[in-house]
Deep mutational scan, measured.
Amino acid sequence: EVPFKVVAQFPYKSDYEDDLNFEKDQEIIVTSVEDAEWYFGEYQDSNGDVIEGIFPKSFVAVQG
C-alpha cells in the first residue's frame, strides 16, 4: 500500500533525468511501486522543493 516511508541506506547518484538522487539517511515517501526492483518517490530538499523520481529498492529500507 502506498504511500509509505523509506530511509536511504546508501547514497544514490544517477545521470538519468527520471531517477531520484539522494544521500544516505534521506527519508523518502514512496508514492508508487514501479516493479520488483524500483520505487517511485519524493522528498523535500533543503530549499523546500519537492524532488521526485525512480530509485532502486535495494538502496533503501522501509520504515516501521
Rank of each mutant, 00 (worst) to 15 (best):
E1C: 15
E1N: 11
E1F: 13
V2C: 12
V2L: 12
V2Q: 05
V2N: 04
P3S: 05
F4A: 02
F4M: 04
F4E: 03
F4C: 08
F4Q: 03
K5L: 13
K5N: 07
K5G: 05
K5Q: 06
K5V: 12
V6A: 05
V6F: 01
V6I: 02
V6N: 00
V6R: 00
V7I: 13
A8V: 03
A8I: 03
A8K: 00
A8H: 01
Q9N: 08
Q9Y: 07
Q9E: 06
F10N: 06
F10T: 06
F10H: 12
F10V: 08
P11T: 11
P11R: 08
Y12D: 03
Y12H: 07
K13T: 09
K13A: 09
K13G: 05
S14E: 02
D15V: 10
Y16C: 15
Y16H: 14
Y16T: 11
E17Y: 10
E17H: 11
D18E: 13
D18M: 14
D19Y: 14
D19A: 15
D19C: 15
L20E: 02
L20T: 01
N21L: 05
F22K: 01
E23H: 06
E23K: 06
E23D: 11
E23W: 05
E23R: 05
E23S: 07
K24Q: 09
D25I: 02
Q26G: 02
Q26P: 01
Q26Y: 03
E27L: 12
E27G: 03
I28T: 01
I28Q: 00
I28N: 00
I29K: 07
I29Q: 05
V30I: 04
V30A: 01
V30P: 01
T31V: 06
T31G: 00
S32F: 09
S32G: 12
S32K: 14
V33N: 09
V33G: 03
V33C: 08
E34S: 11
E34A: 14
E34M: 15
D35R: 08
D35K: 07
A36I: 10
A36D: 14
A36H: 11
E37M: 10
E37G: 10
E37I: 09
W38Y: 12
W38I: 05
W38T: 11
W38P: 00
Y39H: 01
Y39I: 00
F40V: 06
G41I: 04
E42L: 10
E42K: 12
Y43I: 06
Y43C: 05
Y43F: 08
Y43V: 03
Y43T: 04
Q44C: 13
Q44N: 08
D45A: 11
S46G: 10
S46K: 13
S46I: 12
N47F: 09
N47R: 09
G48T: 02
G48N: 05
D49I: 14
V50L: 11
V50N: 07
V50T: 13
I51D: 01
I51A: 08
E52V: 13
E52N: 11
E52M: 14
G53M: 02
G53F: 02
G53K: 00
G53E: 00
G53P: 01
I54F: 15
I54M: 14
I54Q: 12
I54V: 12
I54G: 08
P56W: 05
P56D: 05
P56I: 03
K57N: 06
K57V: 07
K57E: 05
K57P: 07
S58V: 08
S58P: 02
F59P: 06
F59H: 15
F59M: 14
F59L: 15
F59V: 14
F59C: 15
F59W: 06
V60C: 05
A61F: 09
A61P: 04
V62Q: 10
V62S: 08
V62H: 12
Q63P: 12
Q63I: 15
Q63T: 13
Q63A: 13
Q63D: 10
Q63Y: 12
Q63E: 13
G64I: 12
G64K: 11
